[in-house]
Design a protein around this nucleic acid. Structure first.
Lengths: 108, 108
DNA sequence: TATCTATTTGGCTATACTGCCAAATAGATC
DNA sequence: GATCTATTTGGCAGTATAGCCAAATAGATA
């Protein structure tokens, strides 16, 4: 890997890595509409519950999501409100990287 | 993986995946100061040249970087100017994910 | 043309990640 | 306490990724 600073922006890499997976991005996008419990997320994603749980662990460890236990359920929600802006940034980093048509403004 | 829409935001995932690697993020951050040829990038990262070349291929395929051949050299540069904003967004997605101290404003 | 430099590509091994099943844990209800 | 539901954890097999070396390509220079 080439021993260098490499670990300087390791937190950024952790966040990016957490989001750089179809299921995990889908989950995070879904939580923009409000919190969901694991069962609901599992139904949304379609993977095995254990797989979903591990995805959620990764997202929470990166700080992208927070979790809260209420009764038997564990509810997950976004760590901050700015995830929508973040997605816009992603769409803008590469020219025409909009996934859902073209409702996002181009910056360059 | 659970057959679902999953491929809807595949472009976003591609961009995120490209940046979710220490060397590739380092390269992209370095290019904020202007274009660099492969040799210079290799010196910066410290990996083997072939490894660096593959990283650059991934970043270019995702649309994050553009390349231009001049003489024997291939120069790489950012695909757009908004990468700085993007990094700010990354730092804001998770609470206190700032890597380089705390000069980035908190959003939540 | 021969050669030299810069970069890319192919191929290989080591490592990391994904996703499933089964088992364990935690809390609610009987 | 027994049982039921929701979630997490351990472990494994399959797949993908990383990084090195060697070879190939592309263009410059002799």
């Amino acid at each position: 890997m080439g021993a260098f600073r490499k670990s300087v922006s390791s937190k950024r890499v952790e966040v990016l890595k957490a989001l750089a997976h179809p299921s995990r991005l889908l989950i995070t996008e879904a939580l923009m509409n409000g919190e969901l419990c694991v069962g609901a997320i599992q139904a949304l994603v379609g993977d095995d519950v254990s797989t979903v749980s591990k995805h959620l662990t990764i997202l929470r460890a990166a700080g992208v999501l927070r979790s809260e236990k209420r009764g038997l359920n564990v509810f997950y929600q976004l760590g901050c409100d700015c995830f929508g802006e973040f997605l816009q940034c992603v769409d803008q980093v590469c020219p025409s990287s909009t996934s859902s048509g073209s409702k996002t403004k181009m910056c360059c």
